[in-house]
Computed example of a mutant assay.
Amino acid sequence: MTRPTHRFRIAVGALVFFTVMVFAGCGDDTSSADEPVSLVYVSWTEGIAMTHVLQAVIEDSLDREVELTQAGGAAMAFSAVAEGDVDAFVDAWLPVTHGPLWDEYSDRIVDLGPVYDSTTVGLVVPDYVEAESVTDLADLREDLGGEIIGIESGAAINEQTRRVLENNGIDGFSVVSSGDAAMVTALQRAIDANEPIVITGWRPHWMWGRFDLRYLDGAKTGDTDVFGEPEQIRKLLRPKGRDELPEDVLRLLKRMHLGESEMESLMTAFRPGKGDLQATARRWIENHPAVVAEWLSHEEPPGDSGN
Rank of each mutant, 00 (worst) to 15 (best):
residue 71 A to N: 00
residue 10 I to R: 14
residue 76 M to P: 05
residue 217 D to N: 14
residue 171 D to Q: 07
residue 202 W to D: 06
residue 77 A to W: 00
residue 236 L to V: 04
residue 92 A to K: 02
residue 190 A to P: 03
residue 227 F to P: 00
residue 219 A to H: 02
residue 20 V to Y: 11
residue 233 I to S: 00
residue 295 W to K: 02
residue 30 T to P: 03
residue 210 R to Y: 10
residue 219 A to N: 04
residue 292 V to R: 02
residue 171 D to R: 05
residue 107 D to M: 11
residue 237 L to D: 00
residue 147 E to Q: 14
residue 302 P to M: 08
residue 18 F to V: 13
residue 35 E to I: 08
residue 1 M to N: 07
residue 289 P to N: 05
residue 12 V to T: 08
residue 69 T to N: 05
residue 172 G to D: 06
residue 110 V to M: 10
residue 108 R to E: 15
residue 38 S to T: 11
residue 88 A to R: 00
residue 25 G to D: 13
residue 202 W to Q: 13
residue 77 A to L: 02
residue 36 P to F: 07
residue 198 V to T: 03
residue 262 E to N: 14
residue 14 A to Y: 10
residue 138 A to Y: 07
residue 288 H to I: 04
residue 7 R to V: 15
residue 49 A to I: 01
residue 270 F to E: 00
residue 178 S to C: 08
residue 229 E to Q: 13
residue 139 D to Q: 12
residue 269 A to M: 15
residue 170 I to V: 14
residue 103 D to Y: 10
residue 220 K to L: 08
residue 186 A to F: 09
residue 47 G to V: 01
residue 167 N to L: 11
residue 105 Y to S: 14
residue 167 N to G: 15
residue 68 L to V: 05
residue 30 T to K: 13
residue 192 D to R: 12
residue 286 E to V: 05
residue 268 T to P: 09
residue 232 Q to W: 11
residue 99 G to R: 04
residue 292 V to K: 03
residue 276 D to E: 11
residue 203 R to F: 15
residue 239 P to E: 09
residue 181 A to T: 12
residue 142 E to D: 15
residue 77 A to V: 03
residue 67 E to V: 13
residue 248 D to E: 13
residue 268 T to C: 10
residue 122 G to I: 03
residue 142 E to L: 13
residue 14 A to P: 08
residue 274 K to P: 10
residue 250 L to A: 06
residue 16 V to C: 03
residue 92 A to L: 02
residue 163 R to E: 15
residue 145 G to N: 07
residue 227 F to H: 06
residue 73 G to K: 01
residue 195 E to A: 11
residue 207 M to K: 09
residue 89 F to I: 04
residue 163 R to W: 11
